[in-house]
């Protein structure tokens, strides 16, 4: 399944998310099971499956990691194994430091500062990945795969920091 073509958007990493969302709603209106509540079984099943693809496609296209991975999948580039990322010691040190700072952060201000720095480096990753995927050479595609799996780590920490922030504000 190619979600870029299902949503009729260009096959590229940076997407206009407003347009993706608009298309999502149009696709929902066309395929949602409620439109087929009194249809025959075949039609019901067919549209239910299509609607599940629409939901999954939206889930993938709006996510900065999954979207990139899907683009590589469409290009038939194998995603890197976990060892390749874990092998990068500088990156691992960075992650451990971030995690440590989050553990040590005592005040809301410290957590907010951390969230803002994570968001800055996320933006850097996105920009880098976009360039790599736009050049679309075999080498750059593979490098994009590695950057994407690093971005996945960063996303996890961002989520943890967000949870901490919510706890602190309550």
């Amino acid at each position: 399944m190619n979600y870029f073509s299902l949503f009729d958007v260009p096959e590229q990493y940076q997407l206009d998310l407003n347009s993706v969302e608009q298309r999502y709603r149009t696709l929902q209106r066309l395929t949602h099971p409620d439109r087929f509540a009194s249809a025959g079984d075949q039609e019901k099943r067919m549209y239910m499956q299509k609607n599940a693809q629409v939901n999954d496609g939206f889930h993938v296209l709006k996510d900065i990691v999954k979207r990139g991975e899907h683009l590589l999948e469409v290009r038939e580039v194998a995603l890197p194994s976990e060892q390749e990322t874990i092998g990068d010691t500088a990156f691992l040190m960075e992650q451990m430091e971030l995690r440590e700072s989050l553990g040590n952060a005592g005040s809301l201000e410290e957590i907010m500062a951390l969230i803002s720095s994570i968001s800055d480096s996320t933006a850097e990753y996105v920009e880098r990945i976009d360039k790599l995927l736009a050049s679309n050479t075999q080498e750059d595609n593979q490098q994009a795969g590695i950057e994407l799996s690093k971005l996945k780590f960063l996303k996890k920490i961002a989520a943890e920091a967000k949870t901490r922030e919510q706890k602190e504000t309550q």
């Binding site: 696709l27 075949q42 299509k50």
Partner: peptide
């Protein structure tokens, strides 16, 4: 049902294409 499955699928895809093109 089985014989018209492919036809039904093509119709669905056509409708989707048309709607998105309109968009």
């Amino acid at each position: 049902d089985a014989l018209s499955q492919a036809f039904a699928n093509r119709r669905m895809d056509k409708a989707i294409k048309l709607a998105l093109a309109g968009q």
